[in-house]
Write a protein that binds this DNA or RNA. Structure first.
Lengths: 150, 150
DNA sequence: ATTGACCTTAAAGTTCACTTTAAGCTTAGG
DNA sequence: CCTAAGCTTAAAGTGAACTTTAAGGTCAAT
């Protein structure tokens, strides 16, 4: 598969694919006689992995070191335990992020409610103080729970 | 409160606070006779709001436009409905992110399991294919659900 | 009176994750 | 044969969110 097709099929730009190759996120593509890259079909799956990991908050550096690459620090086998360890840590991070998101969501809903059902026309400064207080209240519970978990 | 104290109390660097001020995220601080910034105590709460919003995935631009600022596009009052609208959209985004995170978490757990309970010593290429297949399986269910929701 | 901590500014530097640009091959179609 | 689409490279540019640097003013204590 040439780069244009891979770009279209993956939904990523060709420049991004070249960038990923140069960054070692996808293996160096084979080259045709003309010098054009020839990507194997697996690359598509790998790209899905990469973008999925990105959406999950991994940096490219993390993704590179976590993805099965056969070009990593360990030669051929035996680094599975370390990978599992790293993945476990990442699951922990994801769970922490999930908690924070839930906190944020609750907070936002509280603010929306306060905005829509709260008193009108107190003046901006007063309203600001009220909204801040509202958030502060949401905080007392949620932040304590969050910080206990951290 | 001078910038050093605010920095210490908020846990943010002084340069970051100056940056936030210049970016309009915190109101221009009053100045003492010596030119030193004098921050009001509320700034601490506002900073908590800002960092909280950042952790929730808001950009500084979004935060600036969403935070009650009394210096926004609307003069004094009446822009509450727009803010509520924006916040609602953000809640939607947060919920989408939560779904993606859950997908990622499940995926990672599947990979860990496959890494630890899967066959050993198939060679790296074979193992990579196996892990990718594993993920693909996780995908079929989860991605379908995800993409239906998007 | 000088040291050192703390403050000021403007401007330049950094990292991440890409994109854009420039110059130049290759290949298919009219 | 020519053109246009598609590929190549290296290098420079982008935007977000800061940090660092440089050159200096202020203030409390020794």
């Amino acid at each position: 598969m040439r780069i244009g097709e891979l770009a279209e099929r993956s939904g990523l730009s060709a420049s991004r694919l070249r960038f990923y190759e140069s960054a070692g996120l996808i293996g160096p593509a084979a080259r045709g006689a003309n010098g054009y890259r020839a990507f194997p079909a697996e690359t598509l799956m790998r790209l899905e992995l990469i973008t999925g990991a990105q959406r999950a908050g991994f940096t490219l550096d993390e993704i590179r070191s976590l993805l099965p690459g056969c070009g990593g620090p360990a030669g051929e086998a035996g680094h599975a335990p370390q990978i599992a360890e790293a993945l476990r840590r990442k699951v922990g991070e994801i769970e922490a992020l999930q908690q924070r998101l839930e906190t944020s969501r609750t907070r936002l809903l509280a603010i929306i409610d306060s905005l829509e059902n709260g008193p009108q026309d107190l003046g901006c400064a007063a309203n600001t103080r009220r909204v801040l207080a509202e958030i502060k209240l949401t905080d007392i519970k949620e932040t304590a729970a969050k910080e206990a978990a951290e």
